[in-house]
Amino acid sequence: MSKILPLNLSGISVHAGGDHLLQDINIDFDKGPLTLIIGPNGAGKSLLLRLCHGLIKPDKGVLTWQGSDAAHAPRHQALVFQKPVLLRRSVCENIAYPLRISGMFTAGEIADRVADALDHSGLAAIGDRPAKVLSGGEQQKLALARARAMRPEVLFLDEPTANLDPRSLGQVEALIRETHESGTKIIMTSHDMSQVKRLADEIVFLYDGHIIEAGPAEKILNKPTSREASAFVKGDLLP
């Protein structure tokens, strides 16, 4: 039984300095499929993710979790940023930090969750290492492990594999798949079509702040109905 889903966005718009960054966004995210939000740079993918997570407020429209406002949602959803933001502490301390400040867990529970997150992410051997000295792939795995340790119902991932080498990319994708299979709803942005094909169950195609198409991955990848989605999927240059 879901505690917060579905997430509903209705008539959402975000403006900045006269520019429409997101325009009339209407969509529901429900439990189940691994959702990829795709589109070219500047389409509004990261902004949409931050808006869903609650980091920014819409200028227009309504966002609800399970039909009510977002007040109770932060405890059940987490966001991993494109560039991992890590505290100047050890790997273990980075994972423990959000658990500790939530005030919801005992020291024993925190230790158990940290150990579990380290095991699942393959970081157990470097738990005592300063987070800032890790490689890019390890830092992103740590950011994912930290989010997973919260056991969120919904996990937002903002291009989590950008700038990673193929080996690290494979490891992070495996973690994402495992997290999805454990029952966490994944909503993730990407503009890497090969990754989209590997991971997506459902796709939301965003272009110039508008949702152009949304639906099952197979349909959007094989039979896109819009000119923009068709060009993007084929890898053609977009205007």
Partner: peptide, 24 residues
Amino acid sequence: VEYRDLLHSFDAKPWQIMKTLLWE
């Protein structure tokens, strides 16, 4: 600038934000 989004993402309270930033 570096930690604002992260700490808001963790739903940190203002005093937790101060304490964390001072320690960092």
